[in-house]
Design a binder for these strands. Structure first.
Length: 582
RNA sequence: GCCAAAGUGGCUCAGGGGCAGAGCAGCUCACUCGUAAUGAGCAGGUCCUCGGUUCGAAUCCGAGCUUUGGCUCCA
């Protein structure tokens, strides 16, 4: 464990030193450039510059060459503690450095690092000399814009991202990993596998589900609905638009107006497309008086919402303007809270695991400064969340003050097949809406009380979840989710009737099956099925027809010939029921 | 919204001030084939949109839209 930590420290040091080397190279090219911040980050480093002109990819090549040159010069990284005045003089023409200098708390040591001709205000640590860096184990990756100190109101600087490793082999592995990420990209696979599309002319950030994508979505939704009924939820359906009154009462118009679709005027009233489902579920709650005996109420809906996300932040299915939340609201008494939270978390884990995500981590977010609700309620709710996480034995981190203004929450993040983290489930308390809508229930002593409201989404949004699934499986969905579970390949026209019979039989069993009757050769048909990543391909020729069998070609390339049709059906049922991956 | 790059047939891309190109996919015809691409032919484009420069613009310039990589944001 200590070795691992040391290795990581060492890598951080290499990356941070690499950032300094890059800054030196950039200053060589642009002597008047302003330099800002250049830390090590996960997998690499970056440095922010204020440059006289935009950079091109050719510039990256030149910077790379200059960096290699600097590295081969064996320059020592020398640390020196200086007074504030000395530092001010040193960085007199570096306005960002001066600003950083002023931000260092009084009494704290000010250190600088120098390698050859380049000096940077820096806490360190660094490697001893550039000879500890390897000129073949780094690569500059991209140019991007970034606000100075991450503030939108600040000027935009030019950021250069790079990756750096201890040796060329590690770099190679990392670049392969980047290639893998590209191959799994849900936008590319979505097109190649004919799953979904987006249409700029019809509205950015709005998703069109193609038949193959829709089949997967249906498989997800059917499972979701079944499990929700099994877990004591009721399904509701609510409208897609609502009068301004609803959003004024909920507070959304006050807080999030700029990210709501603009209003439609009708009968001199504004109607808004819904950015959330909660107020609608509340309308149902308020339709009748509630007794403590009715609670808990668990209402779920695959509710499609619209949010006007900023143009620059749209990204495939991961960030869209119209999406379907797998939403539910639980109304319960304070006494029921602990048990409800526990159940929600357990259910959530069950769902995520069913889709093949086994590595799950929890994040508990507590009360932020700007927030509403009584402190005792926050404390009790936060404790309930914590107890639930511990009860499930999940590893978790606490994000102090990271909760929403209306309540504490648990987020669950999963790790996908190549180790990337995605946030999917969220369980949030809401102390705001019950208050705003004045929700009540009649308790056993006849008094009117406010119910607790828990808001939760297990998959997050169907669109985003689908995107994550595509990348997790790299498009090769397990049989229970695959849009086309079985592709039939008749070898010649002589076996068309047999192929049709097998297709009808499999369809009757409820399987998603299709038959390739094109005039292509068998090889081409097999290839076509492989390209679509179908889990099973059945080769049907005269031998199979005469024996009533099928020859199974698995997605993996494995083949089993002469399988009786009924045996294959049993095998497929088994795979689908157990949600096994092949 | 901000910084930068890109936008050429359904897809992947070449070209680039003077006739709009290829491969794949599609269609037609022939082939009836045993585990990842049979062959031949045909069709298909307002070169993102609008404006400007020019005898002439897909190409150069400007604006807009969209996408991509980031930043900011994400109830």
């Amino acid at each position: 464990m200590a070795d691992k930590a040391n290795a990581q420290d060492r890598l951080d040091m290499i990356r941070h030193s690499m950032a300094h080397v890059m800054a030196e190279a950039v200053l060589e090219m642009f002597p008047g450039a302003q330099i800002a911040i250049g830390p090590s980050i996960e997998d690499g480093f970056y440095y922010d510059f204020d440059l006289p002109r935009p950079l091109t990819t050719d510039d990256l090549d030149e910077i790379t060459e200059r960096m290699k040159n600097i590295i081969s010069q064996d320059k020592a990284f020398e640390r020196k503690v200086v007074t504030r005045d000395e530092a001010r003089a040193l960085f007199a023409d570096q306005k960002y450095k001066l600003e950083l200098l002023e931000a260092i708390p009084e009494g704290e040591e000010v250190s600088i690092y120098n390698q050859g001709g380049f000096t940077d205000l820096c806490r360190g640590p660094h490697v001893k000399s550039t000879k500890e860096l390897n000129k073949d184990s780094f690569k500059l990756l991209s140019i991007a814009g970034a606000y100075w100190r991450g503030k939108e109101s600040n000027p935009m600087l030019t950021r250069i991202y790079g990756t750096a490793w201890s040796n060329p082999k590690e770099l190679r592995l990392y670049l392969d990993h980047l290639e893998d990420i590209k191959k799994r990209d849900h936008r590319k696979l979505g097109q190649d596998l004919d799953l979904f599309s987006l249409h700029e002319e019809a509205g950015p950030g709005l998703v069109y589900w193609h038949p193959r994508g829709a089949r997967i979505r249906l498989a997800i939704e059917n499972f979701w609905r079944e499990e929700h009924y099994k877990n004591g939820y009721e399904m509701v359906y609510t409208p897609h638009v609502g009068k301004a009154w609803l959003w004024e009462t909920s507070g959304h118009l006050g807080f999030y107006k700029e990210s709501m679709y603009p209003p439609m005027k009708m009968d001199s009233t504004d109607y808004y497309a819904k950015p959330m489902n909660c107020p609608f579920h509340i309308m149902i709650y308020q339709d009748t008086k509630h007794s403590y005996k009715d609670l808990p109420l668990r209402w779920c809906e695959l509710g499609t919402v619209y949010r006007y996300e900023k143009a620059g932040s749209l990204h495939g299915l991961m960030r869209v303007r119209g999406f379907t939340q797998d939403d539910a609201h639980i109304f319960c008494t304070p006494e029921q809270m602990d048990a409800e939270i526990l159940e929600v978390l357990r259910f959530s884990l069950y769902m995520l695991r069913s889709f093949g995500f086994s590595e799950i981590k929890a994040y508990l977010s507590t009360r932020p400064e700007k927030s509403v609700g009584e402190q005792e309620r926050w404390d009790a709710a936060t404790e309930a969340l914590r107890k639930a996480i511990e009860n499930e034995g999940l590893s978790y981190e606490v994000d102090e003050g990271g909760g929403a203004f209306y309540g504490p929450k648990i987020d669950l993040k999963i790790k996908d097949a190549i180790g990337r983290e995605w946030q999917l489930s969220t369980v949030q308390f809401d102390f705001n809406l019950p208050e705003r809508f004045k929700l009540t229930f009649t308790d056993s002593d006849g008094s009117e009380k406010r119910p607790y409201m828990i808001h939760r989404a297990l998959l997050g949004s169907i669109e985003r979840f689908f995107g994550v699934l595509v990348e997790h499986y790299a498009g090769a969905f397990p049989p229970w989710l695959a849009p086309e579970q079985v592709r039939l390949v008749p070898v010649t026209d002589q076996v068309t009737d047999y192929a049709k019979a097998v297709e009808a039989r499999l369809r009757k069993e409820g399987f998603r099956v299709s038959c390739d009757f094109s005039s292509e050769r068998m090889n081409a048909k097999i290839r076509a099925s492989q390209m679509m990543k179908n889990p099973y391909c059945l080769i049907l020729g005269e031998k199979e027809r005469d024996a009533g069998t099928v020859s199974v070609r698995y997605r993996t390339g494995k083949q089993v010939n002469g399988v009786p049709l009924e045996d294959f059906i049993a095998e497929l049922h088994d795979a689908v029921d157990k949600k096994t991956q092949i």
